[in-house]
Structures are given as structure tokens and as C-alpha cells.
């Protein structure tokens, strides 16, 4: 889970390590994800998101496609 200056930097980093492309998003999307994920972590009644809630959150943020899927496609 790393930060890069651009998609071209991601491609070069993957090629040098012979790693497959995973999932990527803008840092703006990442900030929205981090904010939704962690904003309430200090609350006494915090609870982990359910898989359904995570899937909804990913979809709302535009994190869609096979990589971001939590369960096999129906």
C-alpha cells in the first residue's frame, strides 16, 4: 500500500519487481477511504465494517472491478 507520483511511476516500480498490477486509485480517493475507515476508530461504540458495508464504500468511492471485489461474482 504505497504512494507514487503518477501511474507511470507505478508501472515502472511493478516492472522492476516483476509484480502484477494490483489496484490503484487517486490520493483523493484514498483520503476519502481512509476518512471513512478510520474517523470513528477512537469511539467507544466503534465496530468493524461488515463486508456489505465495505463493498458499498468501495463502490461509492469508485473502487470497482475484480480487484476490489470481496466475494466471488454472483
Amino acid at each position: 500500500m504505497l504512494a507514487f507520483r503518477s501511474e507511470a511511476h507505478v508501472d515502472r516500480w511493478l516492472e522492476q519487481r516483476r509484480l502484477p498490477r494490483g489496484g490503484s486509485c487517486s490520493l483523493e480517493q484514498l483520503w476519502r477511504l481512509a476518512d471513512a475507515w478510520y474517523a470513528h476508530r477512537l469511539a467507544p461504540d466503534w465496530r468493524r465494517y461488515t463486508p456489505d458495508e465495505v463493498e458499498r464504500l468501495f463502490a461509492e468511492l469508485g473502487l470497482v472491478g475484480d480487484f476490489w471485489r470481496l466475494r466471488p461474482a454472483a
Binding site: 504505497l2 504512494a3 503518477s6 507505478v10 511493478l14 509484480l19 494490483g22 490520493l27 483520503w31 471485489r69
Partner: peptide, 27 residues
């Protein structure tokens, strides 16, 4: 170096145009 600055829950700054990448899928 990259600096990701957040003000009042908004991402700011020149480096905000970067990319996040994860190799391992969520499952």
C-alpha cells in the same frame, strides 16, 4: 519526497495528484 496535507478533512497540496497502489487484493 511527497507531502499529503489535509485541512478540515480536505486533501490539499501539489502532491495530492499522486497515486495509491496496492499489489495484494482485499480478500
Amino acid at each position: 519526497s511527497m507531502t499529503l496535507r489535509v485541512e478540515a478533512r480536505e486533501l490539499r497540496g501539489a502532491d495530492a495528484g499522486g497515486v495509491f497502489h496496492v499489489v495484494v487484493p482485499p480478500t
